[in-house]
Amino acid sequence: MELKDIIKPENKVYSKSPVLTNKVMHYCPGCSHGTVHKLIAEVIEEMGIQEKTIGISPVGCSVFAYNYIDIDWQQAAHGRAPALATATKRLCPDKYVFTYQGDGDLASIGTAEIIHACNRGENIVVIFINNAIYGMTGGQMAPTTLMGMKTSTSPYGRTEELHGKPLKITELIAQLEGTCYVTRQSVQSAAASRKTKRAIRKAFENSALNKGTSFVEVVSACNSGWKLTPVKSNEWMVENMFPSYPIGDLKDR
């Protein structure tokens, strides 16, 4: 069988979601952000909620998420996305509202906002990208940076005396009465990505059921920040991040 007999519209089994724009992403090669953006777009497409979804983008690499997912967006100040989402969802309860936040945004400067939004049980979705580093500003230590991990502001490795231990924010979020679904996923493989997509879909479905806040952490790779190749950084993530940030549901009710 010739290739031209296979490459026909009727044989197409996977293509770019129309909810993704045609812009080339500014992310580094192999960056997990792109994969997660795609999964969100696919969920929005499959649920048919493009006209009803409002995204809140953070400060950090994914500040430009609005360039890639073709929905209405609000761009928040650093860490404040859950406050924007709170008001948006309360004022427009028929909308699907999600924040997309990195570890610096959510677990450092925005801890008050995320904890209180989750504790109030706002009917929003939180997508939390944890790559243990500040990507946009050039690889500084994040609250989730692993012990011993070298970054530009922990050049000799993170130590407990100097920096304290990594903040397990997702475990903390799971304790809050307002959250209905708290899960930790990843996107380094096709199987992991498919599971993450199911988690994102469940989170969006929850928000329509007024069950409270759904929180999806995606343990991610930042190969530029980690100074590894994309493939090596995925391997490093599985080996080093997963023991500290184990994959799976923390809460589902």
Binding site: A76, A77, T88, R90, L91, E113
Partner: peptide, 22 residues
């Protein structure tokens, strides 16, 4: 009309950003 006691003034003003955006 929605009335909400926020966790801080920082949050209040950012809730305004969300609401005003709509």
């Amino acid at each position: 009309m929605v009335v909400l006691q926020a966790e801080s003034e920082t949050s209040s003003i950012n809730m305004l950003y969300g609401g005003a955006s709509c």
